[in-house]
Amino acid sequence: VDNKFNKEQQNAFYEILHLPNLNEEQRNAFIQSLKDDPSQSANLLAEAKKLNDAQA
Rank of each mutant, 00 (worst) to 15 (best):
E25H: 12
L19H: 02
A12Q: 03
K35D: 05
E47Y: 05
N3W: 01
I16L: 14
N6R: 00
I16P: 00
N23P: 07
V1I: 11
N28D: 11
D37S: 05
A29H: 09
A42Y: 07
Q9M: 00
A12S: 05
S33T: 14
Q10Y: 08
L19P: 00
A29G: 11
A54E: 15
E47L: 05
L44D: 01
N11P: 02
R27H: 08
P20D: 11
R27C: 04
E24H: 08
Q32E: 14
Q10D: 10
N52G: 03
E8S: 01
L51T: 12
S33F: 15
P38V: 08
Q32A: 12
A42M: 14
I16K: 00
Q40F: 07
Q26H: 04
N6G: 04
K35E: 08
D53L: 15
N43Y: 11
E8P: 03
Q9D: 05
A42L: 15
S41D: 04
L51P: 01
N28M: 05
K7S: 14
I16Q: 01
N52S: 06
P38E: 02
K4Y: 13
Q32F: 07
L17E: 09
E8F: 03
L51A: 14
A29Q: 11
L22Q: 00
Q55H: 03
K4T: 12
F5G: 04
N43A: 09
F5R: 00
L19N: 01
I16H: 00
E8C: 01
E47T: 08
N52I: 02
D2K: 00
N23M: 15
L51Y: 08
N52L: 01
E15P: 01
E15G: 05
Q55A: 12
I16G: 01
N3G: 06
Q9Y: 10
A46R: 05
L34Q: 03
D37V: 10
F13N: 04
E25R: 08
F13R: 09
H18P: 01
A46V: 14
N11G: 13
E24M: 09
R27G: 01
A46P: 01
S39H: 15
S41C: 08
F5L: 05
H18G: 08
N52H: 02
A42P: 11
L19M: 11
A54C: 12
E47W: 11
S39P: 07
E15T: 12
L44C: 09
A29E: 06
L17T: 10
L45Q: 06
P20W: 06
E47S: 04
A48D: 00
D2G: 13
A12K: 02
R27Q: 09
A56D: 06
A29N: 09
S41V: 11
K49L: 05
K49I: 08
S41L: 08
I16S: 01
I31K: 04
Q26C: 07
N3S: 04
A48G: 02
A48E: 00
N28W: 07
A42R: 10
Q55K: 02
H18R: 14
L44M: 05
L19F: 09
F13K: 05
I31G: 03
Q10R: 06
E47V: 13
S33K: 11
F5K: 01
D53T: 09
V1A: 06
Q32V: 12
E47P: 00
Q55P: 08
L22P: 00
E15C: 15
Q32T: 11
R27F: 04
P20C: 09
L34Y: 04
A46M: 12
F13L: 06
A46E: 12
L44E: 02
Q55F: 11
Q40T: 14
E25I: 09
N11R: 11
D2H: 04
R27P: 00
P20M: 13
P38R: 04
N43C: 04
P38D: 05
L34A: 04
D2S: 10
K7F: 11
A48H: 00
E25F: 03
N11W: 10
A54Y: 15
A12D: 05
S41A: 10
N21L: 07
E24I: 06
N28L: 13
Q26F: 05
N43S: 09
N28C: 11
Q9C: 09
E15M: 12
Q26D: 06
A42T: 15
L19I: 03
N28I: 11
I31A: 11
Q55V: 14
K50Q: 13
V1G: 10
L34T: 03
K4G: 15
N52Y: 02
L17S: 13
E24K: 11
D53M: 12
K50P: 01
S33R: 11
L17R: 04
R27S: 03
P38H: 10
Q10N: 09
D2R: 00
A56I: 13
D36Q: 08
Q40I: 14
K4Q: 09
N6I: 01
D36E: 09
K4N: 15
A56Y: 12
A29I: 07
N28R: 11
K49T: 04
S41T: 13
L45C: 11
A42Q: 11
L34V: 09
S33C: 13
E25Q: 14
E24A: 10
I16A: 01
L34I: 13
I16F: 04
Q10V: 03
N3M: 02
N3A: 03
S33A: 15
D53G: 06
L17Q: 14
A12T: 05
D53E: 13
Q32L: 06
V1L: 14
F5H: 03
Y14Q: 10
D53S: 11
P20A: 03
N23T: 14
E25T: 02
D36W: 13
Q40A: 07
R27I: 14
P20Y: 06
E24F: 04
E15Y: 10
P38W: 04
A29Y: 12
A46Y: 05
K50Y: 12
K50E: 15
K7V: 08
K50W: 14
N6C: 08
S39A: 10
S39M: 12
Q55L: 15
A48T: 01
A29R: 06
L44K: 05
N43E: 05
E15Q: 05
A56G: 15
V1N: 04
K35S: 05
F5D: 10
E47C: 11
A48K: 00
Q9E: 06
A56K: 03
N23I: 15
L51G: 02
F13I: 06
F30E: 00
K49D: 04
D2L: 04
H18Y: 07
Q9W: 11
V1P: 13
Q32Y: 08
N11A: 08
A42H: 14
K50L: 13
S39L: 07
Q9S: 02
A12L: 06
I16T: 01
L45G: 02
A12N: 04
K4I: 11
A48Q: 00
E8D: 08
R27V: 14
Q26K: 08
K50V: 06
L51F: 15
S33P: 02
N52P: 01
P38A: 11
L44H: 14
F13D: 01
N52E: 03
Q40H: 11
Q40S: 09
Q55W: 15
N52A: 05
H18M: 06
E24N: 14
K4R: 08
V1E: 15
A54L: 15
A56E: 15
Q55E: 14
R27D: 00
I31F: 04
A12W: 06
K4H: 14
F13H: 11
N52F: 02
Q26W: 04
A54K: 04
P20T: 15
Q40V: 04
Q9H: 03
Q10F: 04
N28T: 04
L34M: 05
V1D: 07
E24G: 07
S33I: 08
A48M: 02
N21Y: 06
N21W: 15
K49S: 12
L51M: 11
F5N: 03
K7R: 04
F30L: 06
K7E: 11
A54F: 15
L45K: 04
L45F: 06
Q26Y: 03
N11Q: 14
K49Q: 08
Y14W: 09
Q32S: 05
F5S: 01
N23D: 07
Q10S: 05
L22G: 00
Y14T: 13
D53P: 02
A48C: 09
